[in-house]
């Protein structure tokens, strides 16, 4: 059951990510990314992170991707033009990404026994468990994010404002 769910949603993730890469129109890429994010939410649930699964759907697929699609519509972005990108990106980028993937996969699979197996329904992290750590041990980082959000508001307003 768990394995079947994992294979379905992991497959959706990879398919969505590849589609993001292959699609030429930004709106298609954005929609594929939403598929990736929503499938990831299911995987989070399988790993017992119920709060994050909800947050993933609400914050990522809901807020962030809506902002993306909104900007794509606002700027009326068309199909990607086939210009010659930096050659270096192709020459160094593809082998680099492939090497990174190979290395990480090798490490993860060779340590597979040490990582153990995940069973459904064990180690569920409830919102209460999270908030006990978040609002006590990590109170300061939590408060500090308010500065971050203030900067983001300030910056978005300052940059996107039209000159008069």
């Amino acid at each position: 059951m768990h394995l079947a769910l994992f294979i379905i949603f992991a497959g959706l993730c990879v398919a969505g990510a590849l589609n993001l890469l292959l699609q030429r129109h930004p709106i298609n890429s954005a929609l594929s990314l939403i598929v990736v994010m929503s499938s990831l939410a299911v995987l989070y649930l399988l790993l017992g992170a119920e709060f994050l699964a909800a947050a993933q759907v609400i914050v990522y697929s809901g807020a962030i991707m809506v902002l993306f699609t909104f900007v794509i519509m606002l700027l009326n972005a068309g199909k990607e033009e086939r210009t010659h990108g930096s050659k270096l990106a192709y020459i160094a980028g593809f082998p680099g990404a492939a090497a990174l993937l190979g290395l990480l996969t090798y490490i993860f699979l060779s340590h597979s026994a040490a990582f153990g197996h995940a069973r459904l329904g064990e180690y569920l992290a409830t919102t209460g468990d999270l908030s006990r750590v978040l609002f006590r041990d990590l109170l300061l980082p939590f408060e500090v994010t308010s500065v971050l959000i203030l900067i983001a508001i300030l910056g978005a307003v300052a940059l996107a404002r039209r000159e008069h």
Binding site: G85, A97, L101
Partner: peptide, 30 residues
Amino acid sequence: MVPIAYYLVLSAVLFSIGVAAFLIKRNIIT
């Protein structure tokens, strides 16, 4: 029962696709 390593491999796959897309895509939003 799924080995946790599978989840980690999936994350490596997604990360690498992201790196490749960053380098290849020509539209800033993408």
